[in-house]
Design a binder for these strands. Structure first.
Lengths: 338, 338
DNA sequence: TTGTAAGCGTTATCAA
DNA sequence: TTGATAACGCTTACAA
């Protein structure tokens, strides 16, 4: 027998006061009598009153809902980012809608449209691999809904973005490789139209130069991050006359493929090739032979930072909107004793 | 310059018709003129009209939002379940709110409260490990919000639940162990107050009996699924005078701990002990020495099934509400060539 | 076939 | 300090 939840009207009736009095009492409005306020609060409790959020959302023309779109939740990086985002959001009494674009632009557009339909107050997004045209996001901004990027951002676009400082991380990785005697250091990067790929490359290049090595075109690779392509890229590298003995990898998930391909197809190179990826997946602690190291990012903190910036943009909609580019440091995480 | 979205009022004004005419035209209401309807639809498109969901939710006293609470999104089982759930939900034009209880009853209560505040129309939940008292869920049901369980359900409670058929899966695992010559087969189970643990045990027991083996109390263990406890349980098993040579494990995540502990602390038992868990984690394909097998569940289908049952309950709120217990088959997945 | 008007729960403006 | 009332956008019973 689901009985209807109590409304301020019910409280007003029970107390024989007006609904505006009740509303004010419930909101600590300045000009309200102390005793009246007490009575209202008591009656609210007695009737188990919960404000009807749908009514408030409707009235305020504001949903207190934020959207976050990630490529997939199967990547723990994004889970942690979502969790950080939710933490700041819920502290500010916002609810979070989560969407996965599954690396499909089509799906991403649908998500944006559904979220816009749900009247989100702001959006945080890590675009799909297919996303190069940003019209669906511009449409949001035109409707007054601020958009912030994280992890992935298109090159040559002036949006705000929070990501990892992959540049310095790449330099650190190269330093470690060189200190271990490596000369032939390859990089397998992600899509080149993302700033996060470009920055990895720049860090890699500057790391080499700093150590007196010159970048070799045949050691600079790009994968679309599918297993097929990961394997293809590795095979090409291994068939060079002078194959690399060290590789910097865009992601630990890519590293998994590389390790397996190395082990099964190039067993003689397996033990002499050292790897560093991004992500520091905890599962490597269960490996008999873990990779050399990984660049540990701070996805939770990225979510937190992006969330608070987004909330700022929502609070101050008429700000100058100078795009902010924030990057949080990575840390080299060793899986092996050095 | 965020201009306000168009409303049916704007359409009505532009066309000099009444708002109810517009509303009806937009909803294919039977008695509406074909030409009027055309004009309305055209104008709606021209003004880029999007219905204001907050107004509809408010008016209909229905949010078209479902909640799903999982222990953690870091477990891929729950991601797939969420995805299945979202699929049926979005087909029925429902939005999904996702919450993680992080195995904390306190957190779970807060989530339920927030979701109730957001006026969800139904909830799907896999309770936290701490949840034994279901008052917070009963409160939801009393408010007319149907609740459905999945994956985990308390013993002795008459709620509907969709889960894996872990009973037959356990029997299959025992069969495989026996066929490979094992006599000392242990089980490390999850919390005993869940039906999913009890059913695993029953399948394990019946599997042994069926194969002419009798259950041995010292081989029947329970872990709270923390790494500490997982290690503790394994050490106890390995120190028996006649340790098991095969183990059925509650989850693949538990299996990871068991494998690592075996390898590092009991290397002489590592190669002779065969393991089967639940989950069939894809990452095992990257292992040099993967476990024997895993019982592959169907989390996506579980989400789908639970979602459609929940939608049924929402559509027919005055049904008899006989709790339904559904379990979907698992399949033995071999990591090694047999 | 189309229009009028009430009402959903809340907030806010203005009057008492 | 309190109360009456309009408004938010939409659906719907009923009237025209």
């Amino acid at each position: 027998m689901p009985n209807k939840p109590a409304t301020i009207k019910d409280i007003a009736k029970a107390l024989k006061v007006s609904i505006s009095t009740v509303s004010k009492a419930l909101h600590n409005h300045p000009n309200i009598g102390a005793i009246t306020k007490e009575r209202v609060l008591a009656m609210a409790k007695q009737l188990d009153y919960t404000p009807n959020i749908t009514a408030i959302q409707f009235k305020q023309q504001k949903t207190f809902t934020l959207g976050i779109i990630v490529p997939t939740l199967l990547d723990h990086f994004y889970i942690h980012a979502v969790n950080g985002f939710e933490e700041v959001a819920s502290k500010a009494h916002y609810t979070v809608l989560i969407g996965q674009n599954q690396e499909s632009l089509q799906r991403e557009k649908e998500l944006v449209s559904v979220m816009q339909g749900n009247r989100i107050d702001g959006l945080l997004i890590a675009m799909s691999k297919e996303t190069s045209n940003l019209d669906h996001l511009r449409k949001l901004e035109r409707a007054g809904i601020p958009v912030m990027f994280f992890a992935r951002k298109p090159v040559n676009e002036t949006y705000s973005c929070v990501s990892s400082d992959v540049y310095h991380a790449a330099k650190d990785a190269v330093d470690l490789f060189v200190s271990r005697g490596h000369q032939r250091i390859a990089i397998i990067n992600g899509p080149s139209h993302w700033t996060t790929s470009r920055d990895r490359y720049l860090g890699y290049r500057d790391g080499l130069l700093k150590n007196g090595l010159s970048p070799d075109q045949e050691l600079i690779c790009e994968s679309d991050l599918t297993t097929t392509d990961n394997y293809k890229v590795l095979r090409k590298l291994m068939r060079l006359t002078d194959p690399p003995t060290a590789m910097l990898l865009f992601k630990d998930y890519l590293m998994l493929d590389i390790m397996t391909c190395l082990r099964t197809e190039f067993p003689n190179r397996y033990l002499i090739t050292e790897l560093i990826g991004y992500g520091a997946l905890p599962l490597f602690s269960h490996f008999e032979r873990p990779p050399l190291a990984s660049l540990k990012e701070q996805p939770f903190q990225i979510g937190v930072k992006a969330g608070s910036l987004l909330l700022d943009m929502i609070k101050n909609p008429h700000q100058s909107r100078k795009p902010k580019l924030i990057s949080l440091p990575c840390k080299l995480h060793y899986f092996k004793e050095l």
